[in-house]
């Protein structure tokens, strides 16, 4: 649905040209959520705005549903919707319903179709009872939900979400996430940027991490998390391990740490699926409460990648 190929963008500052985006290529298929992550100033928003056609790339090409964004901007714009961070996305003096009808009509819907679609979307995000309230009277979470509705009025095939859950309370963030998941099941391609790694991990089918304008990691979320997970097992007991149990565990000859009296971190051979059972055997009769293999989370992966420890593509 989205194919951005070899995007380059340089800006001119007093100190000389700055390469904000350096040969970035990303693709998002229909029904897929791509989390586009990176630290502040890495080039995420510039990339999203190039995809939207708001910034013209110096090099490279963006194609949305087969339409070149630079060559046929109006047609491309009719196929995408965006919620942009730092923008209000809505007219605060208009009501929720008036806003949706305005933005829908602006995107070539008839007023009757726009009204019907607005009703559907307001129901979907649970704002039906606020439809006649002006936007300025809504909470930040409600405004963000309405901004998402605004982007969906014309049923775009690609939705760009720049920090959609920033500054939202738990319930509002959950509502936005639920809407994003639903869009994915409806076949909408979603390009999402966020600094909230838990949000990205919960929503994204695939990840792309950018650092200083360059893409440094891409892959399916599960595969990336598995790749960054270490073969370390944590064994937690109900009470402190005895000296005898520790000595017995050390006889296995595997790297072993004891971060707390009740916890052991052990690295058994990866090619031996029965190894963990041998460890549990030698720890008898300790009251084992938890046995788990280390599973990297996205925050850990992100930290490693942006601090330079990640693999470059």
């Amino acid at each position: 649905m989205l194919a951005a190929d070899g995007l380059v963008k340089r800006f001119h500052s007093r100190t000389g040209p700055i390469t904000a985006v350096d040969h970035i290529s990303i693709a998002v298929a229909a029904g897929e959520v791509l989390a586009f992550l990176g630290p502040n100033g890495a080039g995420k928003t510039t990339t999203i705005k190039m995809v939207a056609g708001l910034i013209r790339p110096d090099q490279g090409r963006v194609v949305v549903d087969g339409v070149d964004v630079t060559g046929r901007p109006a047609l491309a714009a009719s196929r995408l919707g965006a919620v942009l961070e730092g923008s209000r996305n809505l007219y605060w003096r208009l009501t929720c319903l008036e806003n949706l009808i305005y933005w829908g009509t602006l995107r070539r819907l008839t007023p009757a179709v726009a009204r019907q679609r607005a009703g559907e979307l307001l129901r979907m995000v649970d704002l039906e009872d606020r439809q006649h309230n002006s936007v300025q009277t809504l909470s930040r979470g409600m405004q963000q939900k309405l901004a998402l509705c605004q982007a969906l009025m014309h049923r775009p095939q690609l939705v760009l979400l720049d920090e959609p859950t920033l500054g939202l309370d738990f319930a509002s963030a959950e509502a936005i996430k639920a809407t994003v998941r639903q869009l994915g099941t409806e076949g909408v391609a979603i390009l999402l940027t966020t600094h909230q790694m838990d949000v990205a991990q919960q929503l994204a089918d695939r990840l792309a991490i950018i650092r200083a304008g360059q893409l440094v990691l891409t892959g399916r979320t599960e595969e990336v998390l598995t790749r960054y997970s270490r073969p370390v097992w944590r064994v937690t007991a109900g009470e402190a391990f005895s000296a005898g149990q520790l000595a017995a565990a050390r006889t296995l000859g595997w790297p072993l740490e004891q971060p707390t009296p009740k916890d052991l971190l052990v690295t058994p051979p990866e090619d031996d699926p029965a190894a963990i059972y041998r460890l549990l055997d030698v720890l008898r009769p300790a009251a084992i409460r938890l046995v788990e293999r280390h599973q990297a989370d996205l925050a850990e992966v992100f930290q490693q990648v942006v601090s330079g420890g990640g693999e470059a593509l």
């Binding site: 714009a77 009719s78 995408l80 942009l84 209000r88 007219y91």
Partner: peptide, 14 residues
Amino acid sequence: QNGTLEQVMLAPWH
């Protein structure tokens, strides 16, 4: 000033 220009410019019109 109101932060809506980018949305307006995303509309499918010249």
